[in-house]
Amino acid sequence: DHDVVPEDKFQETLHLKEKEGCPQAFHALLSWLLTQDSTAILDFWRVLFKDYNLERYGRLQPILDSFPKDVDLSQPRKGRKPPAVPKALVPPPRLPTKRKASEEARAAAPAALTPRGTASPGSQLKAKPPKKPESSAEQQRLPLGNGIQTMSASVQRAVAMSSGDVPGARGAVEGILIQQVFESGGSKKCIQVGGEFYTPSKFEDSGSGKNKARSSSGPKPLVRAKGAQGAAPGGGEARLGQQGSVPAPLALPSDPQLHQKNEDECAVCRDGGELICCDGCPRAFHLACLSPPLREIPSGTWRCSSCLQATVQEVQPRAEEPRPQEPPVETPLPPGLRSAGEEVRGPPGEPLAGMDTTLVYKHLPAPPSAAPLPGLDSSALHPLLCVGPEGQQNLAPGARCGVCGDGTDVLRCTHCAAAFHWRCHFPAGTSRPGTGLRCRSCSGDVTPAPVEGVLAPSPARLAPGPAKDDTASHEPALHRDDLESLLSEHTFDGILQWAIQSMARPAAPFPS
């Protein structure tokens, strides 16, 4: 592969990997390779389809078979030569091979799209000592099968071997295949498990690692696999990028399955594409389908809103127990993405979901129960707010008499603000006073009005108090039968009158 990737590009890729991570280095090298001529790309395919690569990765054979028959990708048995050289000459001794072996032994695996480039050397060096003999053996194999790289107009793939297949390693990572398949204008990513390549439709969760975000852009890794992070704060999961590491605690105790298979379609829109997988259930989501939507993949363990709600429900009964003089119970939860139609709101002032922060849900004790107040519409209280300059209440639009249902020339009671006709409430011909108009209920007259088809109010509507207090003497005590009587009149003013009279009014101040 030294004929494909020059030394300066190799060093530039290593520097970019240390600065921005393996995914960015892979993407940059792939983009550079696509700008080369067809001879360089053909050399790339020839390096990929060597015999030892085909033996190690069985899924490469179907890719090789898909090439046109007129494309010669065979390799000479006596060494490598550029395709432009007409004579089959043995190339001179390859010093770059020693360079590659020494550099890969030092860096474990470079971040390139060629056999030198995919593992994360920093994480491997940190986690190597417990498994040094086995990992050293794996390093000797890295130059042979560490990076199976493929690129063409139909298929483009980048393979990364790992030393996680050490025997006896619980939940060992089998390997990473960062794979971009450009077929019919689409893009897919796969993962390699035990020599087999699994596409998103049959993606397997190998051991402790999972394909957290099938994305090839942005600074985030394709698999949430930063070796420096180790395990999740809650004892979460091992990262795919942690090559040759000792077994780590796999999943939280509440995880239903340690080796679950995540779905390959969004649980909201039932469509495929780039998904984020939940650590607590097999569901996966688009970032845009979450509520609120996320802009980037959160670091650490992530769970959907259903799993978060289940966790909150487990903690909430203990938080609601009476604990005198104790601060509110704080339950730190990872930043969760909410699927459509589901929402768990945190306290005000918290950062938005999706940031690399930890939301704190506070379970406050329930407030003391209070008697429910009568629910009145805002339009129902409008007549009470229509007060004239002299303190006389004006008529609201649409006000109707509670007896006849007519809204023409209605009066407004100064005591309960109900609309009424003087002739309907006082049919006996009582003279109307000039000021202080009161309806039949507030004036103490319980004589029913002779209106055909309208039920008369119940005599129990009024329960006047002592006459010594004029204001308190007109406080009506309405009961269920009074409400039914008012409802039978089918008037809004009657219902409003009952609601206003049912509310307690402050006692009249004593004259000074």
Results as ranks from 00 to 15, higher is better:
Q242L: 10
Q243D: 11
S245Y: 13
S245H: 13
P247A: 10
A248Y: 14
A248M: 04
S254V: 09
S254C: 11
Q257W: 11
H259E: 01
D264L: 06
C266E: 03
C266W: 06
G272W: 07
C277T: 09
C278F: 08
C281G: 08
R283Q: 11
R283H: 14
A284R: 09
F285H: 14
H286Y: 09
A288Y: 05
C289A: 12
S291F: 11
E296N: 14
P298I: 15
P298F: 05
S299T: 13
T301K: 07
W302F: 07
C304I: 08
L308I: 13
Q309Y: 11
A310C: 09
V312F: 14
V315Y: 09
Q316I: 11
P317M: 11
E321V: 11
R323E: 11
Q325D: 07
Q325P: 11
E326F: 12
E326W: 13
V329L: 10
V329G: 10
E330G: 10
P332M: 15
P334Q: 13
P335K: 14
P335C: 15
P335V: 12
G336T: 09
R338G: 15
S339Y: 13
A340S: 09
E342R: 10
E343L: 12
P347E: 09
G349F: 11
E350M: 05
E350Y: 13
A353T: 10
K362A: 07
K362I: 04
H363D: 02
S369T: 09
A371V: 06
L373C: 14
P374E: 04
S378T: 08
H382G: 04
L385Q: 13
V387G: 08
E390I: 11
Q392Y: 13
Q392W: 13
Q393T: 12
N394F: 14
L395F: 11
L395H: 15
R400V: 05
D406C: 12
D406E: 08
C413R: 02
H415A: 06
A419G: 07
H421V: 02
W422A: 11
G429T: 04
G429P: 05
G436T: 06
L437Y: 05
S441F: 12
C442S: 01
C442R: 01
P448K: 10
P450G: 15
E452W: 11
L455P: 10
A456R: 04
S458M: 14
P459M: 15
A460R: 12
R461C: 08
L462F: 12
L462E: 10
L462Q: 09
A463S: 10
K468S: 14
D469W: 10
T471F: 09
S473F: 08
H474T: 03
H474E: 05
E475T: 07
A477V: 11
H479Y: 07
R480L: 08
D482C: 04
D482F: 02
L486M: 10
T491Y: 14
G494F: 01
A507I: 09
A508W: 03
